[in-house]
């Protein structure tokens, strides 16, 4: 499939599902999403649901990244009203699912095209931050179109490693409220011990281990603990230097206690009594598998750690967590 020379007249039903390319530049694959809302726990799941339709799978537009930027000029999309950063395995999916439970929200949860443009400078040497910001804004505008009459605002739930790019997000979306979620480190590490996220695997994100974690590593546990510490420190640093946008640090225990009540406060949402009740019901489900009720698994999570993983967690990650807690509690 060759890229189309000019931007086709794509209406809001067409969304970018994949950005790809090499040193020659980036291209964008557009899928006809139709009326599908982004309600699945992750962006890719919504796309995969849609790709079961043979038309959506077979007939996709391919354009240059410049056509994506031009599309934003013609169709700017809905305003971005909130950004969710996190250290992973700490309730961010629950927060995204609560936001998506309100039909007026478009929630982009770990959207692949967002990640690709953020990491494009790895493939395209010399790419400036200004260019990445332009692409990031264009991707979000294209994904954040009003495709239902009720929709009026966009929220981004980012990948964990995107916290490392928090200053760039603040430049791309000035004034937009953001939160950084985190959790007791042993519980997070135990969750990754069972199924590691991409950021816990050296090289998986196209980063050299030294570049990714800041120093050499001798084990997966050490790498993971250092990477999580770096993510937490990025969240803390951005919070301490916040300027024009409301920002919050949120520990998992706060979410677990009352996510549905905390949410409106985080993003200044005005909810009806019915909406509050609806969110409480959604909060009672397992966010990553919404057909299951949520089960408390904190003890079980911490028990799954090896002594080596515990030691690396305490050595490299504990301090960052405690500094986040101290900052949150104003100590």
């Amino acid at each position: 499939m060759s890229p189309e020379a000019t931007a086709p007249p794509l209406d809001e039903s067409w969304v970018p599902i994949r950005v790809h390319g090499d040193a020659g530049g980036l291209e964008v694959d557009w899928c006809h999403l139709g009326p599908e809302r982004f309600t699945a726990p992750f962006f890719d799941q919504t796309v995969e649901d849609r790709l079961r339709h043979p038309f959506a799978l077979l007939f996709q537009h391919r354009t240059s990244i410049d056509a994506l930027v031009e599309r934003q000029r013609i169709r700017p999309g809905l305003p971005v009203r909130g950004l969710v950063f996190h250290m992973s395995r700490c309730g961010s999916t629950l927060l995204a699912q609560l936001l998506a439970a309100l039909p007026r929200h478009v929630v982009l949860s770990e959207a692949g095209p967002v990640d690709t443009v953020l990491r494009a400078h790895r493939e395209l040497p010399g790419l400036t931050d200004a260019q990445r910001i332009t692409w990031l804004q264009a991707v979000v505008a294209a994904l954040g179109q009003r495709r239902h009459p009720d929709e009026e605002a966009v929220f981004l739930k980012l990948d964990a490693w995107h916290a490392l790019e928090l200053p760039l997000f603040q430049r791309a979306f000035p004034g937009v409220p953001w939160v950084f979620l985190y959790r007791e480190p042993l519980e997070v590490m135990a969750s990754h011990a069972r199924h590691r996220g991409a950021h816990m695997l050296p090289g998986a994100l196209g980063l050299a281990p030294r570049e990714a974690a800041g120093m050499p590593t001798t084990s997966l546990d050490e790498y993971g603990a250092r990477m999580l510490a770096r993510i937490c420190e990025a969240g803390l640093r951005a919070f301490q230097h916040r300027r024009d946008a409301p920002a919050r640090l949120v520990d998992f225990t706060q979410l677990h206690a009352s996510a549905a009540d905390l949410l409106p406060e985080l993003f200044d949402l005005k909810l009806t009594a019915d909406e509050r009740q609806h969110l409480r019901e959604v909060a009672g489900r397992d966010a990553k598998n919404p057909v299951l009720p949520f089960e408390e698994n904190r003890d079980e999570k911490a028990r799954g750690l090896t002594p080596e993983a515990r030691a690396q967690t305490e050595r490299h990650l504990r301090s960052a967590y405690e500094r986040l807690e101290a900052e949150r509690q104003g100590r």
Binding site: P8, R52, H53, P54, F55, L58, F59
Partner: peptide, 24 residues
């Protein structure tokens, strides 16, 4: 594919057939 992507009528017809056998 190029014909379909430039013709809304063809697109509408194919979009209206989610069942694979009918689509084929």
């Amino acid at each position: 594919r190029a014909r379909v992507l430039e013709d809304p009528t063809l697109q509408s017809a194919l979009q209206a057939t989610p069942d694979l056998a009918t689509f084929l």
